[in-house]
C-alpha cells in the first residue's frame, strides 16, 4: 500500500553563500496528500523548484517514482505535474490555447484529455476567453488543469489556495481528495496557512528556515484526543470566570464577551451544572477541536505564521 511516489533525500540548497534549504528528507506515498506548511520565506517554493527541476540541488537527491531528478530528469518530470508559485499563463492566449500549448509538449495527450481536465476544474465557460481577463481563482484552476494534463503520479501545488474564496478552497479539496483516492496520485500542497489545507491533507510537514521541523498525521487519534476549546455564552461572565477558577481550578478567558476554556469534552456537563447552580445563565455552548494550527503555533512561533 505505502508505495513511495516521491522521496527527498537530505536535500540542500545554497544560494550565494546562504543555505536556504538545510537538509530536508521526507517521503510521500501514492494516494497521499501531503501538506507542506511553513511561514513565508521558509523555503517551500525553493524546495518545490528543486522537485520539478527548475533549480539544481546543492546536495542530496530527489526521486520521483524511483527516478532521480538529477540523473533521470526526463523520466522523473514525466511523472510530475506542478504549479510553482503563481499560476502564470500566457495572458494573450485563451485558457484552451494555453492548455493545448502545454499538451503539445508531452506526447500522447489527446484533445479529449484536454477537455476532460477543463471540465474537472470547472472552466468550461471561460475557457475560450483570454487568460489576461481571468481572476486569480480562475488562473489557479487553469494551473491545476495544466498540471493534470498528462496524468502525473505526483501533483505539486504551491499555494493553490491563494486567491480562492472558501467555496473555491472547498472545491479544490473535493477534487484533490478524489485524485488521491481514485487515481492514486501523490499530492503535495504547500501553504503558509495551515487552516486552509489541513482538511485536505493526510499528513502535514512543517518547514521553517529551510528545515523540516515536524511531520504529523492529520487523522492521528492522538490529535483527536487533543484539548478542546470550549466556548460559552454566559452572563454574568466575570462571575463565571471566578467560579470556574474556584470550583474546578480551570483558567478561562473572555473573548468577545464569550467564555473560552481549554478542557476536554467530558468536563462540559459538570461545568454547566456548576454555572447553573450559581445562577449564571447559559445561552450557548460550543466545542471546537483544537486545530493542528494551535499545536504547531508552539513549533513555529505564533507571530511568524500569517
Amino acid at each position: 500500500m505505502a508505495e513511495p511516489a516521491m522521496q527527498l533525500l537530505d536535500v540542500k540548497k545554497n544560494i550565494g553563500n546562504k543555505q536556504i534549504i538545510k537538509g530536508i528528507s521526507f517521503t510521500i506515498n501514492r494516494g497521499e496528500v501531503f501538506g507542506f506548511i511553513g511561514p513565508n520565506g521558509a523555503g517551500k517554493t525553493t524546495t518545490i523548484r528543486m522537485m520539478v527541476g527548475l533549480m539544481n540541488l546543492s546536495d542530496g537527491d530527489i526521486r520521483i517514482m524511483g527516478n532521480s531528478i538529477k540523473s533521470d530528469y526526463k523520466q522523473a518530470a514525466r511523472e510530475v505535474g506542478a504549479i510553482v508559485e503563481n499560476p502564470e499563463m500566457y495572458p494573450f492566449m485563451s485558457g484552451k490555447q494555453n492548455l493545448l500549448h502545454y499538451a503539445r509538449m508531452i506526447p500522447g495527450i489527446t484533445k479529449e484529455r484536454v477537455n476532460e481536465v477543463i471540465s474537472l476544474v470547472g472552466l468550461e465557460k471561460p475557457i475560450n476567453d483570454k487568460v489576461g481577463k481571468y481572476s486569480l481563482g480562475m488562473r489557479q484552476r487553469l494551473g491545476i488543469a495544466q498540471a493534470l494534463l498528462h496524468k502525473p503520479s505526483v501533483l505539486i501545488l504551491d499555494e493553490p489556495t491563494n486567491g480562492l474564496d472558501p467555496a473555491g478552497i472547498r472545491e479544490i479539496r473535493t477534487y484533490i481528495r478524489s485524485l488521491a483516492e481514485k487515481d492514486n496520485v501523490a499530492i503535495i500542497i504547500s501553504s503558509h496557512l495551515l487552516s486552509e489545507v489541513e482538511q485536505m491533507c493526510d499528513r502535514i510537514g512543517i518547514i521553517k528556515n529551510g528545515e523540516l521541523i515536524a511531520t504529523q498525521n492529520v487523522h492521528d487519534t492522538s490529535v483527536e484526543k487533543q484539548v478542546n476549546q470550549i466556548l460559552m455564552e454566559v452572563t454574568p461572565v466575570k462571575k463565571a470566570v471566578e467560579l470556574l477558577k474556584t470550583q474546578h481550578d480551570i483558567e478561562s478567558t473572555v473573548n468577545n464577551g464569550a467564555l473560552v476554556i481549554q478542557n476536554d469534552k467530558e468536563s462540559i456537563p459538570q461545568l454547566i451544572k456548576t454555572l447553573v447552580e450559581h445562577d449564571i445563565s447559559v445561552y450557548q455552548v460550543s466545542v471546537t477541536k483544537a486545530s493542528l494550527e494551535d499545536k504547531f503555533f508552539d513549533l513555529i512561533g505564533e507571530n511568524t505564521i500569517e
Binding site: 527541476g53 510553482v84 509538449m105 495544466q146
Partner: peptide, 14 residues
Amino acid sequence: RWGTIKLLLIRPLS
C-alpha cells in the same frame, strides 16, 4: 517576464 518559464521548463524535455 510572464512567469511562464516555470511551466515551460517542468516538461519532460531537455
